[in-house]
């Protein structure tokens, strides 16, 4: 009973922290990016101000849009919100752990992606259509790569729920495995694509022909844009959580043991910070690639995922 109560509190804490902190993570990354470029950068709390400003503005609806125009941002946001709730952050063993199967999370990301794509097609103009077509193209390889990666995780952890994978990787002594190295490289490629970061898409891009994500949300304004932007922040945090949970599970707290929480929380913040630094340095040191090179990038990720599975076989027979 007490365990259930603690798990409940941990779950609520995780959800609240994620939802409140997502804009802060984006703010930190923007700041770090600016620093790396030698600029002063926007204030850390700028994303909050941005969202508040959008909320206060009147929402415009293009006259060529149908009645479902307001539905797509909400759909995308809800899917990403549920995914954020399901992916563990500072602790394992939350109440949402059982529902948080890796395949479900892939499905939720796909749901958010399709809602955004439909939002892009909604007004019926060239930019939205082009963005949606490209997003569809990227999704094809990204999803294949994610599923293949799951094989490696499932074989190592004997379970397919993200929570279970984290627990297994933390407790069982897996060691530094070649397979996990490959899997990490592949996962990072997919994560960068899915969150629209630099080698595949430019989050601060405003050149219509090169944009993917920005092109789809071009017609949105006011509270609908706030939903979409906030959804993007949640997605970034969710991906960081996912990578942190699977590849850096050390030091994660136990939901039922309240005394492990502070350490877990501190380490979680540390991991997020490290990932933010790595991401911003990577972003400023790379150029955006051509749209038709991205499938090659993701195709390499897919094949690396398969390599991870194959090499697991070599290692599995060792009995270590």
């Amino acid at each position: 009973m007490l365990g259930f109560a603690f798990a409940f509190i941990a779950t609520v804490l995780h959800i609240v922290l994620c939802f409140v902190g997502a804009p802060l993570v984006t703010g930190i990354i923007n700041k770090l990016r600016a620093w790396a470029l030698g600029r002063r950068g926007p204030p850390l709390l700028q994303p909050y101000l941005h969202l508040a400003r959008l909320l206060r503005k009147i929402t415009l609806v293009p006259d060529t849009a149908t009645d479902l125009f307001t539905f797509w941002p909400l759909g995308a946001f809800l899917a990403l919100a549920v995914a954020t709730m399901l992916i563990p952050g500072f602790t394992t063993g939350m109440l949402t752990a059982d529902a948080g199967d890796y395949v479900t999370i892939i499905g939720l990301f796909a749901l958010a992606r399709s809602a955004t794509m439909l939002g892009g097609l909604e007004t019926g103009f060239g930019f939205g259509g082009a963005g949606a077509a490209r997003e569809a193209l990227f999704g094809i390889f990204a999803e294949g790569a994610l599923l293949v990666l799951l094989l490696a995780f499932a074989l190592l952890a004997q379970t397919t729920s993200v929570d279970g994978i984290a627990t297994a990787f933390r407790t069982a002594h897996i060691g530094i495995s070649v397979s996990l190295g490959f899997a990490l490289a592949a996962m990072l490629a997919v994560a960068l694509t899915e969150t629209g970061r630099i080698p595949t898409d430019n989050p601060s891009g405003h050149l219509e022909l090169g944009m993917v994500h920005e092109a789809m949300v071009l017609e949105y304004s006011g509270r609908l844009l706030a939903l979409l932007d906030y959804g993007g922040m949640l997605r970034l945090l969710a991906w960081m959580n996912l990578i942190g949970t699977i590849f850096l599970p050390f030091g994660m707290a136990q939901a039922t043991e309240i005394f492990s929480w502070p350490g877990g929380l501190a380490l979680w913040a540390g991991k997020l910070l490290v990932m933010a630094v790595a991401l911003s340095i990577f972003e400023v040191s790379r150029a955006k690639m051509r749209v038709f090179r991205v499938p090659e990038f993701l195709g390499a990720a897919l094949l690396l995922g398969m390599l991870a599975g194959v090499f697991l076989f070599v290692a599995a027979r060792i009995g270590a």
Binding site: G175, I176, V178, G181, A300, L304, L307, A320
Partner: peptide
């Protein structure tokens, strides 16, 4: 073993 494997893996990754 772990480190040797990891380095072998990186070499293979580079070659790939």
């Amino acid at each position: 073993f772990s480190l040797a494997h990891l380095m072998g893996g990186i070499i293979l990754l580079c070659a790939f």
